[in-house]
């Protein structure tokens, strides 16, 4: 039973990551290859404040969000300078620089040894330290983010963010600054990914740089593109496919030694086929053209 709850927790973390990436890719049209930077910033901020300064989860959370926002400001600067492919390449560079920092800045991140002993969250003295309780805790976060998006997508600011994605010149002609809306979108994306990072760090109680690589960023982006960008249902579907795919392979009695590779092959193939034949993804609204 614990295994099912573990799968559920990972699904919730990936849903949050996919929704955060959807904010940038689907709503702002910014194809970022560095979502793991925000994820990692949140996770490291939580891990460091909890283990080195003795913060509780609820004190570590705002710090993690703040650090993610600071990282987002750097990305906003990049988004203001370059567009399309060059934005993607700049984010790719930022992702690799972040990984180098996490790997080499040993006094802060402990390098390859990572940070262990990250304590679990507590609510009203109740420790969230089992997969079942974490699954409920994660579900609350997912629900909050989904409810936020149900509201946010109807707001004028969301429409202006999407207008910036579709036609920057039109937004400029309305007297609005497109970079301002990109900045808001990137910050929002960073906050949600940062929350996912705090969940991951406190759930696994250990983090190291290998969880925040370029591969992870590509994976998060793929989840959004397969599910479909621009809607809430798309990223959720992508995350469900990614998490449940290995379970399906287990059902087919595929040995563990090849199941991991087969999962990535199927996921990669699905990405190529989606791009080739259904560029909007399974349930997407926005076509990256």
């Amino acid at each position: 039973m614990n295994y099912i709850f573990h799968i559920l927790v990972m699904l919730e973390i990936y849903i949050l990551l996919a929704l955060s990436a959807n904010q940038k890719v689907g709503l702002s049209g910014l194809l970022s290859l560095a979502q793991a930077v925000f994820y990692g910033s949140g996770a490291y901020a939580a891990a460091i404040t909890i283990t080195k300064f003795g913060f509780s989860y609820w004190l570590a959370l705002p710090v993690a969000i703040l650090i993610s926002i600071i990282a987002a400001l750097l990305f906003s600067f990049v988004a203001g300078k370059v567009r399309e492919l060059y934005f993607s390449l700049a984010t790719l560079a930022l992702q690799i620089i972040f990984f180098s920092l996490a790997y080499n800045w040993i006094p802060v991140t402990n390098g390859t040894y990572g940070i262990s002993g990250i304590s679990n969250p507590e609510i009203f003295g109740l420790k969230i330290n089992t997969p079942a309780s974490f699954a409920v805790f994660g579900a609350v976060w997912v629900l909050l983010v989904i409810l936020f998006y149900v509201w946010f997508l109807k707001t004028p600011i969301s429409r202006l963010i999407q207008a910036t994605r579709d036609d920057q010149i039109a937004v400029l002609s309305l007297g609005k600054n497109p970079n301002y809306y990109k900045r808001i979108s990137i910050m929002l994306s960073a906050v949600i990914a940062g929350i996912a990072g705090t969940l991951y760090a406190t759930y696994t109680t250990y983090i190291d740089p290998s969880s925040f690589t370029l591969d992870e960023s590509i994976l998060i982006l793929s989840i959004v593109l397969i599910g479909g960008a621009g809607r809430i249902i798309g990223p959720i579907t992508g995350a469900v496919i990614y998490i449940l795919l290995p379970e399906l392979l287990k059902f087919l009695q595929m040995p563990d030694s090849i199941a991991a590779n087969m999962r990535m092959i199927l996921f990669g193939l699905l990405l190529v086929l989606i791009v080739r034949f259904k560029p909007k993804g399974l349930f997407g609204k926005y076509l990256i053209q």
Binding site: L31, E84, I218, V272, P279, I288
Partner: peptide, 11 residues
């Protein structure tokens, strides 16, 4: 556009 081929290439 180039972003689409980049994604296909990653896949």
């Amino acid at each position: 556009n180039q972003s689409i081929s980049l994604i296909a290439s990653m896949g």
